[in-house]
Simulated assay, not measured.
Amino acid sequence: MRELRVVGLEPDAKHVVLADPTTGDKFRIPVDDTLRAASRGDLARLGQIQIETTSSLRPREIQARIRAGASVEQVAEDAGIPVAKVERFAYPVLLERSRAAEMAKLGHPVRPDGPAVQTLLEVVTQAFRARGHSLGAATWDAWRDEDGHWIAQLQWQAGRSTNAAHWRYQPDAHGGTISALDDVAADLVDPDCGRPLRYLTPVYSARDVDDTIEAEAERRAAVVDDTAEIEASPDAEVPADTVAEPEEDTADDTADDAPRTGAARQTVAAVGRDKRGKPALPSWDDVLLGVRSNGRA
């Protein structure tokens, strides 16, 4: 790079005259804001001037977009300038957003019965612990919406899904209040925050159904075998509680007691046997429900 020497100003004082000490060639440059900032060593002003001349966004617009939630990479891509030049103006705004997020953690969630005593950070910590999530892996952020309110965001990874909760933070002398803006945020600050975000319903496959049918068939076969053993045994007796006791009719005459006694004996002998004289087998409903042939449980 060749070095030039300042010779002086032109008569109109709008240009600086420079000369090459080796060849004696003279040059001139305009006296503008860039030259004035360079002569003072004002690097911030030089970067601002460069952005104004090479980008479609002014520094104030860059800061406004970052304050509204945009990232440095997004603004740099939209403006068509390097990320380093955007970071120079984004840094103070990012500090402001980080400070707002820390203040939102200390706010009190608003519930139907009023603001909670616990802070947002304490409530969310309990909810994460109940659901098995790690709050240390979650990220907090904040930005201003179109109405000028601070919006606090909590984002975390659960499996392969990314979850995010948003609250509106209203600062005051007591730490501020937090109002949920979506269902995820409302669930986290709900008193019953231990329940999961999604409810799972068991799904049975065809194999499970086949196993259930096979087990039922085996149980029925076992009942049939037990019944067949009882039927084949000559010493099988009818349980005493299966014998139906005849009801006494006090209105009948004493002369009819003998015929009634004979009929009752025939009834007792017939209980527990079918028409062929064999023990009656219980029905499937009786076996499954635990009900005996006489209707008793």
Rank of each mutant, 00 (worst) to 15 (best):
E231T: 13
T212M: 13
A137W: 05
D208W: 01
G194A: 08
R276F: 14
D235P: 06
C193L: 11
R144P: 05
N294I: 13
D226F: 12
A221C: 10
A130S: 10
V291S: 07
K26D: 01
S205C: 08
V72Y: 06
A186H: 14
D256E: 10
Y199W: 12
L35H: 09
D208S: 06
P279D: 02
V17A: 06
S293D: 10
A244C: 10
D141W: 02
D32A: 12
E77V: 05
R67N: 06
A165Q: 04
D12M: 04
R207L: 10
A137Q: 07
L9C: 03
W140T: 01
D145C: 06
V209E: 08
R273W: 09
A258T: 13
A186C: 05
F27R: 01
L200P: 13
Y204E: 14
R292C: 05
Y199K: 14
P115Q: 11
R144S: 06
P82R: 12
D208I: 02
A264P: 15
S283W: 08
I81Q: 08
D32H: 09
R129E: 12
D33F: 10
D20K: 05
H108F: 09
G277V: 02
V224R: 10
A255F: 12
Y91I: 15
A280S: 10
A280V: 07
Q126D: 13
A206N: 07
Q126M: 13
L188E: 04
A70Q: 12
R129A: 07
R45N: 09
P171T: 08
S39W: 12
R40Q: 06
D226M: 09
D241R: 01
A232Y: 07
W284K: 13
H15D: 01
L94T: 09
S71W: 04
P112D: 14
R5V: 03
R144E: 15
R160M: 11
T23D: 02
R60Y: 08
R65P: 05
S55H: 02
V209D: 11
F27K: 03
V203P: 03
P279L: 14
T139Q: 13
R129T: 12
V75W: 00
V117E: 15
